[in-house]
Design a protein around this nucleic acid. Structure first.
Lengths: 110, 110
DNA sequence: ATAACATATGTTAATAATAACATATTTATA
DNA sequence: TATAAATATGTTATTATTAACATATGTTAT
């Protein structure tokens, strides 16, 4: 009997992981998560730091919120955002560290 | 002097991380990496296991190769692929584990 | 209640990712 | 060397992402 028993990622985990990676594959969102790792910030502050338009910031935050990576709280006129899921930062930080390794290890261009 | 010294991800790391996350945000590519983690496989085998067309497999493998996540070797008529970068699997596996956590923690739909 | 500030949401145009199909290369064997 | 098998590459239509702009909603102070 020849059984190699190769394992596949099941549909649910696959889709969920895909969503997470999609969320992290955008530079603005990555920076936002990185910022919020350090400090709770409101929309205007984030836009100022990243030099990104207000509506873009709000849209991307909504996106992150939809997938529960951030939560928010209204304080006065401003709405402050914070990380809702510190664990995801492990993935981010590990990947940044990895990217560092990849960058250093590059033979030529690309 | 008011200095909050908020740190930003620098351009290089940001772009590199973005590339990696983009690569991982596709279900076919994720499955491929997961397969290759277990066993070196050729194009036909991968297509068979994942039930994906030959040209799609080749295109996606080329994509992964371009970013040095896999390497390949010709053996007879077949070309076998293998992981070139086991470290990236840590990111993948951590994210899958995380997605598991997220899925369990979900209150209602979405 | 109205004005001003902050944020959210709707819509659209530009761009990128994907799968599908066709064709070209490469390798082994008759 | 001709053929078949395996893989790669080119091209295109479909769909998804993104940023930009316009408008709406919510919050505070006057």
């Amino acid at each position: 009997m020849k059984q190699d028993s190769i394992h596949l990622i099941d549909e649910k985990h696959l889709k969920e992981s895909q969503k997470i990676f999609k969320l992290l594959s955008n530079p603005t969102r990555l920076q936002m998560l990185h910022l919020l790792e350090q400090k709770r910030l409101n929309v205007k502050e984030i836009g100022g730091i990243l030099n990104v338009e207000q509506s873009v910031v709000s849209h991307q935050l909504a996106h992150l919120k939809k997938f529960q990576l951030v939560s928010s709280e209204q304080i006065g006129k401003a709405r402050y955002y914070q990380l809702n899921d510190p664990h995801i930062l492990d993935v981010v930080n590990e990947t940044i560290a990895h990217s560092d390794h990849v960058m250093r290890g590059k033979k030529h261009g690309e």
